[in-house]
């Protein structure tokens, strides 16, 4: 019996090629690309011959743009709807609470950009000048920029294949004028595809401090998060830690706690122990978080004494510690 297997999943592929590189490939960007012994009969030969040689000139522009940013943190999760954007928002508000820090929040979700609404910047327009796109300031020391700002009106679906998305991400990284920042928090869409490969490629030289991985407690989410962690390993992205969101719900009526998304396999904590990743904490479900996000207000400011706020700030502290160490 022959079972079917998915092809070539062990390595991150070169985006320009049709097939994975053969064993003695001279390298698609090298001077000998397409001319080596291994190139004869390779499906990529023609592509390699025509690829631009040497380093990508845009990389210098991206590096120049981002050179005054001290720390870059990716917010990732294999699973959608677990709270990546919510956490990006919370982390940004929390970091910006220190007036001496300059914070930027960047949204890379092209098909479903939610960060403008959550940070209260929905409907803002961005300004382009000679020096590039200026971020929208939602606070004295908190600027944000969404790839959504570069797209046509609200409800229109962005029906783009990957290649087009990559072009936009590159332009976005190249053209946004962040200036000096202590932290840039980067929100990503779910999955392990074009956006993730691109942001990692384009930020490789200027350096990513690492990733904050967000999950919810149930196994269906953890399974996708495992894959995201596997992606980080393949892409050499350091994992700063994992946070478990929507962990338990306290009924406002009777104050009893229910596990809405049951951690039948041990939740985020067990996954961290298994894979050797720092577990940064668990944040309970609180209906007021969703409301604050819909309204673009800071939950941390509105309900500073709530258990969820305390939990979020603990996670932020643990994360900063992980970045600084």
């Amino acid at each position: 019996m022959i079972t079917v297997e998915a092809p070539n999943i062990q390595k991150i592929e070169n985006p320009n090629l049709k097939e994975p590189e053969p064993e003695h490939c001279p390298g698609p960007e090298s001077e000998d690309a397409g001319k080596g012994d291994a190139c004869d009969g390779c499906a990529n030969q023609e592509i390699c011959e025509s690829l631009p040689k040497g380093p990508d000139p845009d990389m210098n522009l991206i590096n120049e743009r981002l050179k005054d940013i001290k720390h870059k943190v990716l917010v990732l999760s294999g699973k959608g709807g677990v709270g990546k954007t919510t956490f990006t928002t919370m982390l940004s508000w929390a970091l910006a609470a220190d007036e001496d820090l300059e914070i930027g929040a960047m949204d890379l979700d092209i098909c479903g950009p939610s960060l403008p609404r959550m940070l209260g910047a929905k409907g803002e327009s961005v300004h382009a000048s000679n020096s590039g796109w200026t971020p929208v300031y939602v606070n004295d020391n908190l600027g944000m920029m969404s790839i959504g700002f570069m797209l046509p009106e609200d409800d229109s679906a962005i029906v783009w294949r990957g290649a087009k998305k990559n072009g936009l991400i590159k332009q976005f990284l190249k053209d946004v004028d962040w200036g000096k920042l202590d932290y840039l928090v980067i929100d990503t869409p779910p999955g392990t595809s074009d956006e993730h490969i691109s942001v990692n490629t384009y930020l490789k030289e200027s350096g990513i401090d690492g990733a904050l991985v967000v999950t919810t407690p149930q196994e269906v989410a953890l399974l996708d998060v495992r894959k995201e962690i596997d992606f980080c390993r393949k892409a050499n992205i350091k994992i700063l830690g994992l946070v478990e969101n929507m962990s338990g719900f306290v009924c406002p009526g009777c104050k009893n706690e229910s596990m809405i998304f049951k951690p039948t396999t041990g939740g985020g904590k067990a996954l961290c122990e298994e894979l050797g990743i720092p577990f940064l904490g668990a944040v309970p479900l609180d209906p007021r978080i969703g409301k604050a996000c819909d309204d673009g207000e800071s939950f941390l400011d509105l309900y500073p004494d709530s258990p969820a706020s305390t939990a979020i700030l603990d996670v932020v502290d643990a994360l900063i510690e992980s970045i600084e160490s």
Binding site: I9, G78, A163, T192, S193, D194, I197, K227, D230, K234
Partner: peptide
């Protein structure tokens, strides 16, 4: 189609 349930599929669109 994958060997290990934790394997990521890091594929671009094509």
């Amino acid at each position: 189609l994958i060997k290990d349930r934790g394997d990521s599929i890091v594929w671009r669109g094509a």
